[in-house]
């Protein structure tokens, strides 16, 4: 009886771990997508709206959700509090909140690099930097989608299979 309960627990947790891993792949794709939306919104606010950066960041963040929105909202807050330069504010927000996202190093460095340029040059230059970051992210998104298709399914079955193996060995 106890063994059966244990086996069920192992199976359950194995499957969950597998699903979680698969979800991380899906999350990464979705979050890169959101990041791209944020950049697009920023481009509109900066290029056409002449919106001051703190406000532009907040509006852009409103179009995204969860940890991605939090990155930009925190940056805007830091700017409003005064003191910080954009690059430092964004870097601090990334250091603080990146671990909550499912994104990886290439996306992180693209965001940080964008922070180095944001707000400190004329409109055309800002748009160039935003597009460059968007291009980098699009490449990552394609890769992420690929991985999601390939490893997402694999992880889902792998979790269950591994748990099954453990159960068989245990019994």
């Amino acid at each position: 009886m106890l063994k059966l309960a244990g086996a069920i627990l192992v199976l359950l947790s194995g499957t969950l771990i597998g699903f979680r891993q698969a979800a991380r792949y899906a999350d990464r794709t979705a979050q890169i997508r959101q990041l791209l939306h944020v950049l697009q919104r920023l481009e509109t606010e900066i290029g056409f709206g002449h919106t001051p950066l703190p406000e532009a960041l907040e509006r852009a963040a409103a179009g995204a959700a969860g940890p991605v929105a939090a990155l930009f909202r925190r940056t805007a807050e830091r700017l409003r509090e005064g003191g910080a330069a954009v690059r430092d504010a964004l870097r601090a927000a990334v250091d603080e909140g990146w671990s909550l996202t499912a994104m990886r190093e290439p996306e992180r460095s693209a965001v940080i690099r964008l922070g180095d340029a944001l707000g400190i040059s004329d409109r055309e230059d800002q748009i160039r930097h935003l597009r460059l970051a968007a291009a980098l992210l699009q490449a990552e998104e394609a890769g992420a989608r690929d991985e999601q298709a390939r490893y997402g399914k694999m992880w889902r079955s792998l979790g269950f299979m591994a748990a099954l193996l453990v159960v068989i060995l245990m019994l």
């Binding site: 002449h50 919106t51 001051p52 707000g119």
Partner: peptide
């Protein structure tokens, strides 16, 4: 950066 409110483009 501070006197332009981080928005030189504006």
């Amino acid at each position: 950066e501070r006197i332009t409110n981080h928005s030189l483009y504006a």
